[in-house]
């Protein structure tokens, strides 16, 4: 499963990762090899097997009572934010 340079660029775009010109061929090579490696799964007969999304089969989602338990801590939470103003997180202008 050899990935093309364009596919690597497409994956990096979907994942929002800037790759340097040096990194792209490295990932092209290693991702292709990883896909070859995991590709051996295709040979396994799983026709009648349900996918297992979770290690503890048979457990169901627990439900939380509908109660407000939180208070306003936005200043504390925003201490980690690169840029904020008037309680808002700021990003470069988003054009709709």
């Amino acid at each position: 499963m050899a990935l093309t340079r364009e596919q690597i660029a497409g994956i990096a775009y979907l994942a929002r990762l800037d790759l340097t010109p040096g990194e792209a061929p490295v990932y092209q090579e290693s991702l292709s090899r990883i896909l070859d490696f995991v590709g051996q799964l295709a040979r396994v007969d799983t026709a009648s097997v349900a996918p297992m999304a979770h290690p503890l089969a048979g457990l169901a989602q627990r439900l939380r009572a509908d109660q407000v338990t939180e208070t306003d801590h936005h200043e504390q939470y925003q201490a980690n934010a690169p840029t904020v103003a008037a309680g808002l997180y700021l990003v470069p202008k988003v054009i709709e």
Partner: peptide
């Protein structure tokens, strides 16, 4: 793209890309 490209190291990026694919 730059924040993530700079903030993550090579192996993390490799796994993110594998997973995305």
């Amino acid at each position: 793209c730059r924040s993530r490209g700079e903030g993550f190291g090579a192996e993390v990026k490799r796994r993110i890309m594998t997973g995305t694919y």
